[in-house]
Computed example of a mutant assay.
Amino acid sequence: MSARLIDSHCHLDFPDFTGQVPEVLARAEANGVAHLVTICTKVSEFDKVLAIAESDPRISCSVGIHPHEAAEEPEVDAARLVELAKHPKVVGIGEAGLDYFYDKSPRERQRQVFATHIEAARRSGLPLIVHSRDADDDTIEELKIGAGKGGLTGVIHCFTSTQKLADAALEIGFYISLSGIVTFKNAEELRSVIRTVPLDRLLVETDSPYLAPVPKRGKKNEPSFVKHTAEFAADLFGMSHEDFAAKTTENFQRLFSKAHV
């Protein structure tokens, strides 16, 4: 694959990558990955995420609170998120959303924090990076409220949800990001949904260190592995690997327009 790829979602600040970022970047570049976004899950640790992004021009970052952390993180309003997002390296708001599978934070608290991030994305003009698991209806409701106010863009990251959420997200102008899960043997239902997504709305990601794609499943995931997901998805759509890489990179640049790729 000679076309450049973008890993639109990884977590280089997680302990799995401590002291390894230069080597991870070198392997990514060797596998055609030109840029990556390291994603914030705790605003209280944003400085650490930002420092990684500042360490190399190939890395951008986001600012936000993961739904698992919604109850434990300090109260942050939209204005504070917008202020943090003014940094040149910050290209998105999140990841934020709803996770009713693990329910690590009370659902009402998750919705409050999600709504705050939606407002911050609207005000900043940056794309919202959405985490949604077993929470399709409430995710759709919150996104439609935000979209109704205007100026909301974003992506459903690591998409594993239903046709209903895919259709609703696409209708309001969002993108769908594919992780290694799409390569898993038992993911045929997911693949049937993905086949309905327009090519100009697709991104690829690793969500590393989690969810390594086939043929790396079971190993620690890393940005270089995004090529396996992209190649699998290209085959799914009957495209050349190079054309699919070029298309998803073009899509990334359109959505994450603040990133210097």
Rank of each mutant, 00 (worst) to 15 (best):
H131Y: 04
K144N: 09
A115H: 00
R80H: 15
H131E: 01
A85Q: 12
D138T: 06
L170Q: 05
G151K: 08
G146Q: 03
D103V: 04
R123I: 03
H87T: 11
G94Y: 06
A96L: 08
E95Q: 10
P127G: 04
S124K: 05
E142D: 08
Q163C: 09
G154Y: 07
A78D: 11
A79G: 13
V113M: 00
I129H: 05
T139Y: 01
P106F: 05
A168M: 03
D138H: 04
L170D: 09
C158Q: 08
D136K: 03
G150R: 05
G94L: 09
G146A: 03
R133F: 04
I145E: 13
V113R: 02
R109F: 07
A147G: 01
I129G: 01
G97V: 05
A135C: 06
A168P: 01
P106S: 06
D136F: 03
V91H: 13
L98P: 08
T139I: 06
G151P: 06
H157W: 09
L152R: 07
I93N: 11
E142M: 14
K89D: 10
L143W: 04
F101Q: 11
S161Q: 12
F101T: 08
V91F: 14
E119F: 00
K164A: 14
P88C: 13
T139E: 05
D103L: 13
C158H: 07
H157R: 12
I140D: 03
V130G: 02
A79F: 11
R80Q: 15
K149N: 09
K104A: 09
T153Q: 14
H87Q: 15
R107P: 06
I140F: 02
S124P: 01
S105I: 02
I93Y: 07
E142P: 07
S124F: 03
L81H: 07
K104F: 14
G154E: 09
